[in-house]
Design a protein around this nucleic acid. Structure first.
Length: 415
DNA sequence: TCTGGGGTCCTAGGACCC
DNA sequence: TCTGGGGTCCTAGGACCC
């Protein structure tokens, strides 16, 4: 039986964070459109997260790249203007885009905050995929005020490669017969899933373009690079049978990490950070109604060495205290006294839903009480904001009494 | 004032079992 | 005085994505 040819679009917002901040500024009455100057959205240098998150076309022309430090970006582009990001606003713009796209198909995969895949197979009645791509491109621009690139192809990989060709505000096709002329001529570094560790290895093998990679012997690539070798060989030949994952998917893991304002070398202080992170992680975990089976703690030293330890739990839990206790043990077995720590991270993995939970043999009154406490705290946080409730060991007495009054008020109001 | 934060997936080696 | 080998689970670390 012949397989039906799939009709795939990839939508990619041009300079998403920068465009969205530009729109927000204009809406607030500012006259300068930061899309038209040398500008970036950047992290906070005083918090040691000073990197480029998004760049304008003019900044890109000066050689500014995403992920580099603002310091480096300024060296290339002395007049660079740096703006702060606003994740809440970005989420809203992303939803606006999604709402338009959902008028074309219900098979939409949110690949990231600014990228979507659309499976249009069976949605085209007397119209071409390309005409739909142009329509989406035009509508988003007119109705939302920002531009998108649209990639048109018969699988996700080719649609994604196509949307990346020339920017901004463009529609590109990449059908099978166009692979040699449009894709094989590109540098191999342009291929999806080839990063900075693999590129030098390929260069040493004389592989410079995607076409060079496509012509390699498949078995040889597998022998040399394992599974990754197979993927890069298939991608270079335009092969990708993955589906558009349009159903809402539960996360497989949840993590929070933070670069500290200054390096810490005292375990007690690191433990406090750990507790804050565990609270955030478990709060999110419980909002998904999920339970964790693995706890992972990550440390980055001041000279940028990463370490992580993880532990499988004997039972599933979403309880702040239980996960914190495990995290603390992991920190203790990993941390060498006196080491300066730059970043602390906590992740929970092997998540399961409520009906898959293995009930603890030690599920005693104490942990039931803990669960109840988590629930009360969560509901207060949902109602009055995340920072409305905080653990006693992190706060001063004066604050403690203020918060206590607030909680008592909330509880009496709830009755 | 040099290098974020949130994810997914893979691999290698050790432990353990049969 | 012979020491294999397949399978599974667990952990640490790494590569890649946006």
């Amino acid at each position: 039986m012949e397989k039906i040819q799939r009709q795939i679009l990839h939508i990619d917002v041009n300079n998403a964070f920068l465009s969205w901040t530009a729109i927000d500024r204009l809406a607030m009455g500012e006259t300068l459109d930061i899309r038209n100057i040398e500008a970036v959205i950047g992290g906070d240098e005083t918090k040691r997260s000073g990197i480029v998150l998004a760049k304008s076309t003019k900044a890109k022309k000066k050689g500014v790249t995403t992920g580099e430090t603002l310091y480096q970006a300024r060296l290339k582009c002395p007049n660079l203007q740096v703006f702060k990001g606003d994740y809440k606003s970005y989420k809203k713009h992303s939803n606006d885009l999604y709402n338009i796209l959902s008028q074309y198909t219900d098979k939409i995969e949110r690949f990231s905050i600014d990228e979507c895949f659309l499976d249009m197979t069976g949605c085209l009645i007397g119209e071409s995929l390309l005409s739909k791509a142009y329509e989406i491109n035009k509508r988003v621009k007119e109705e939302l005020g920002f531009t998108v690139n649209v990639g048109v192809a018969h699988n996700k990989l080719l649609a994604k490669m196509a949307s990346d060709f020339t920017k901004p505000d463009k529609v590109h096709t990449l059908f099978e017969e166009e692979i040699p002329s449009k894709m094989w001529t590109l540098p191999v570094s342009e291929l999806f899933m080839l990063g900075k560790k693999t590129i030098p290895k390929l260069y040493n093998m004389g592989i410079k373009t995607i076409g060079d990679l496509a012509k390699q012997d498949k078995e040889y690539m597998v022998k040399k690079f394992g599974k990754h070798g197979l993927i890069m060989w298939e991608y270079s030949n335009g092969i990708d049978n993955s589906e558009v994952h349009y159903l809402e998917e539960k996360p497989k893991g949840i993590g929070n990490s933070v670069t500290l304002p200054t390096d810490l070398a005292e375990k007690e202080k690191i433990e406090k950070v750990l507790l804050t992170l565990v609270e955030q992680v478990t709060y999110r975990l419980r909002r998904y109604n999920m339970y964790a089976n693995v706890v992972n703690v990550q440390l980055r030293t001041k000279d940028f060495k990463d370490f992580s330890h993880q532990r499988k739990l004997s039972y599933s839990t979403a309880n702040t205290k239980e996960i914190y206790n495990t995290a603390k043990e992991l920190l203790n077995e990993m941390y060498k006294n006196g080491t300066y720590i730059r970043l602390v991270g906590v992740r929970v993995d092997n998540l399961v839903e409520e009906d898959e939970v293995q009930i603890s043999l030690f599920n005693n009154d104490t942990s039931k009480k803990q669960e109840k406490l988590d629930k009360v705290v969560d509901s207060l946080k949902q109602k009055y904001g995340y920072n409305s409730v905080t653990r006693a060991r992190k706060i001063t007495f004066r604050k403690y009494y203020k918060i206590k009054r607030c909680i008592v008020n909330c509880l009496t109001k709830n009755k």
